[in-house]
Design a binder for these strands. Structure first.
Lengths: 215, 215, 215, 215
DNA sequence: AATGAATGAGGATTCATTCAT
DNA sequence: GATGAATGAATCCTCATTCAT
């Protein structure tokens, strides 16, 4: 499992022995281990195909143990979502307090790209399990986030093709994450290429409306 | 569900000749009715969440009747896929026999747009159930179709951003189908806007390589 | 399949084209073909594991066609049983009208051996599906036949070991049919060896009671 | 069912400590209770005809409870087989380390008789469900056990009739178990009669080869 | 002499969840 | 902080059988 899949950034899975900062017998990492394994399996096989039995078996605990840490299966997903999408919430908040200039939008895309690659497996999961996720609570949450993102970069009064360009910019970034796994090349370079195209799209969209032109 | 969801174009669901109110002689079309209902439910709720019981109930037949017409649940999906993706197969074949000029690519996108909107629910389904579909036989088939499409419009030696533009063009068309349901506007106009953006993307990708320039 | 499996001795399965003796377009062999295939599958896989679908598929007819010829699945088995065990009925009748001398018993065993190898697959089936067959009508019939056979060769007042010898003689002949498939050697020779042992057993049983001694 | 059917010798079925009449706390022994009931039903009705529903109902638990204790239906049978055929494995091992004299063979038969009657219902089951068992994993296991037993008492270079005698000895013991239920008499006496006949058969087989003669 | 379409009953199996310990 | 044992509801699927044509 890659580190990007880790739920709490820095230390994940690996460091099992040792202290958790307080100097005590480190326990309490089970919750995170559950999240890690769940995310990995959800992303790999989908939400429905991943059973709690499977998660428990991988962790070598019983299903009942999962229920000590999470109220339901859905709750595991919710917790992942909350932990991992905070950067995006912050981005949305940050953008809310700024004028909707082209430069802002470009900066938004740059930051979004970072946020996305910091939680790639989760976003891949959301993308590949839309039908399932739609009837889960995170579905609503995710959708409203996306709508907020669109509000930020898309002008509802612009000509339709320009609106499409903005939507496309966002989706290109999402799709980029897993479609480009099929393409050769250094991941970081690919990310930059995707970002470049997304920025281009938004720039073009802006250009035709003629608000503030890029160089 | 619009008529585009119907499996064999013209008459769908509605026209049930024979005694329908009295007994239940609705001869011969049961197979198609199953496909129609299945597609509708698969697209709406996802593949896993749609049970054969539900399909059967909607049609007012028993589950066993479904098994008379299809060998397995997956088989229903396969049959839908085969029936509905024929136009895309033909498109791929057509494009295979042509030089890969910009004009060809644009024509491919135009035809692809038609093909897509002729089987919108199925494509929406494939998009929203990728995790599930990946381990189904249609998953492989679909993936190989997509790769063929990419071979047609994408130059593997072009700079990365241009390759991304091409991929983005394709995904914009896919995503356009269901994301734009959130946007106001006439469906046909939206389709045209999406197509315009996709063609633009491919054109730009082509331009920077400098093969054959558009006007 | 094999000729011993054929329901009516001489011509089975193979001769499809041609006339059925009257000079007409041979029809009416379907019933027999069903019996042949059913016996083959019953013997190979067991009664429960053999579905009517499978039988029908092998014959390239529909399940419904089977119901034209036989009232139920069980009925197919019953018909096989009736057709194939006639020789044994006749043997029992023949033996019923004779004194129970050692010579009679030996002759019974000889004839029994013939009868058995004339319907080997059916007997193999009966042996290997006793649990199933027990609750079928043929179960009762078969059991009563066996009891009659025992009455013929076994003396209820003989010492227990001698009674066992007689039972063993019969079972040796049954088991001989399929256990010896594991042993190398010419089938006809094996049959003779089995018969020899069976006769020996009955002879010994008789000897100790001292009725009429063999040479 | 007799105690010989019990899976773990001593206390079976009956002794259910805990509140049995009131609630349903009959802790810990559920696994064994499942085995007991399954064996009883398998032997009585056959493997296929015995549904997990039936087993569960008899135990007054849900089907799902069975799946807590056993992975599949087949697994229940496998567990019975493993638990109950250990004595025979030991016998085979014991015999493997000894010269193949007549005395050894006789001792083998004696011990085999004991082993058989210690797991009579299972052996009856194996005998009566051969067709079914053949495609189950225990089928292979059982067959290889039988072949090992034959290796021990049968000389592959002896004349065919003598080989048949040895096979017959083994089958007589198997068949003896359930065919003799039809014959009057004390079970223990019947067992001894069967053993005597089996030993006789092996002795005769040995005698004609002339290795080491009995008294 | 046979088919096409369907049914009702039941099969094994899996799942998320609960709760006393 | 976790387990062992169990449940209830649902899943896909298979089967023997029927009947109008």
């Amino acid at each position: 499992m890659g580190d990007t899949g880790g739920v709490s950034g820095a230390e994940s899975e690996g460091s099992v022995r040792g202290t958790d900062g307080t100097g005590h017998r480190r326990r309490g990492n089970t919750r995170k281990r559950i999240q890690d394994v769940a995310l990995e399996l959800f992303a790999e096989q989908g939400y429905e195909k991943t059973s709690l039995r499977e998660i428990a078996e991988r962790l070598d605990v019983t299903k009942a143990a999962l229920y000590y840490h999470f109220k339901t299966k859905e709750d595991i997903l919710v917790s992942l979502f909350e932990d991992l999408t905070r950067p995006i919430d912050e981005l949305i908040e940050w953008a809310g307090n700024r004028p909707r200039t082209l430069d802002t939008k470009r900066e938004v895309l740059r930051r979004y790209s970072d946020a996305l690659s910091g939680a790639a497996p989760l976003f891949r999961f959301m993308q590949e399990n839309q039908a399932t996720v739609r009837e889960l609570s995170v579905g609503e949450t995710f959708k409203s986030r996306m709508i907020r993102m669109m509000d930020i970069i898309k002008d509802p009064d612009a000509p339709l093709p320009d609106q499409v360009r903005c939507i496309s910019a966002l989706f290109t970034m999402h799709a980029g994450m897993f479609v480009l796994r099929e393409v050769e090349g250094d991941p970081e370079e690919k990310r930059k290429a995707v970002l470049e195209v997304a920025i281009d799209l938004v720039t073009q969209a802006h250009g035709s409306t003629g608000e503030d032109r890029p160089s």
